[in-house]
């Protein structure tokens, strides 16, 4: 039972970590909390659905959908956020809310307000026995994808010139530009990465929910925001730690809380968040340089 719940917690935490990382990468470079990150997930879900309806085989459809998310993220930066560059944190935040609201309405009116069922292949709903307990294929894939994505990102940031430039930009963007690295490229790459992470997270999200709906991006982006704040805004290791912590707390509370207290689950989780922030106001693993307006 306990082992099973730990797997559940890691699986959910992994998805939260991917989401929080997507927010953190963009924040570390441009100081923007992109609340339209959730709509990137929704878009990915619809892209997957469209590809499946068009008869694209499942693995190719997943690939297409994730690429779609990355392109959409870059487009979002080009269209909505680049004209706002240098604006205050508040203006950027409001811009991201506007983009989010606009996309939701487009999904509702353009597709349907009703959730659309996504046919997840049968093998993904299966489970295999492992000693005493059964592990679902879904959670296994979820954990594997999260870990692989984290390793790949770490590799990109440590071993490539662009990656190094991005890490440097997170600490001091002006100096990086003085070194001759174009700002547009760094920012576009940050959005591209956040789009890829949103796409991957969306695939895991949709696979465990079997439907996409216009409002599905709201909950994940909220969780990602909490995770990123707990971890330390703008800190990538912090986002990962925050994501896993949030996943573990949520699953454990769901599993252990007596029925009478169950309705207060979210309140307890958020109280925990406040407690963490009281002890460590900059988050679990603070960013090297926190950007403030």
């Amino acid at each position: 039972m306990i082992a099973q719940q730990i797997i559940n917690a890691v699986s959910l935490g992994g998805v939260y970590a991917l989401l929080a990382l997507g927010l953190a990468i963009v924040f570390s470079i441009v100081g923007l909390i992109n609340f339209a990150h959730g709509e990137l997930m929704t878009l990915t879900g619809y892209a997957l659905l469209a590809a499946l309806i068009a008869g694209v085989p499942f693995p190719a459809a997943v690939l297409l959908a994730v690429i779609c998310a990355a392109i959409a993220a870059v487009a979002m930066e080009r269209i909505a956020f680049r004209p706002m560059r240098g604006a205050s944190v508040t203006s950027l935040l409001l811009t991201s809310f506007a983009v989010s609201g606009l996309l939701k309405v487009i999904f509702q009116n353009g597709v349907s307000a009703r959730p659309q069922a996504v046919a997840i292949p049968g093998w993904m709903t299966g489970a295999f026995s492992f000693g005493d307990f059964t592990i679902g294929v879904g959670p296994t894939i979820s954990i594997a994808v999260s870990i692989l994505a984290l390793i790949a990102l770490e590799f990109f940031l440590r071993r490539t010139v662009t990656g190094t430039a991005m890490r440097a930009a997170a600490e001091d963007f002006d100096v990086v530009r003085l070194m001759g690295i174009p700002a547009n490229r760094i920012i576009a790459t940050a959005f591209l990465l956040s789009g890829l992470l949103a796409g991957l997270a969306a695939m895991l999200w949709v696979a465990s929910r079997a439907s996409v709906d216009p409002l599905m991006g709201f909950t994940p982006v909220l969780k990602a925001f909490i995770a990123a704040v707990v971890g330390g805004l703008g800190s990538l290791p912090g986002a990962v730690a925050g994501g896993f912590l949030l996943g573990v707390i949520e699953v454990l509370l769901q599993a252990m809380l007596p029925a009478a207290l169950a309705p207060y689950r979210d309140a307890i989780v958020l109280s925990g968040v406040i407690a963490v922030l009281l002890i460590r106001p900059q988050g679990l693993i603070p960013a090297v340089r926190v950007q403030r307006s």
Binding site: M1, Q4, Q5, N8, S11, L12, V15, G136, P139, W205, S208, R209, F218, T219, P220, K223, E250, V251, L252, Q254, A255, R265, D266
Partner: peptide, 12 residues
């Protein structure tokens, strides 16, 4: 919780 992402704990 309505709109909760994950039912795994309940299912376990």
């Amino acid at each position: 919780t309505m709109n909760q992402p994950d039912f795994s704990a309940e299912i376990t």
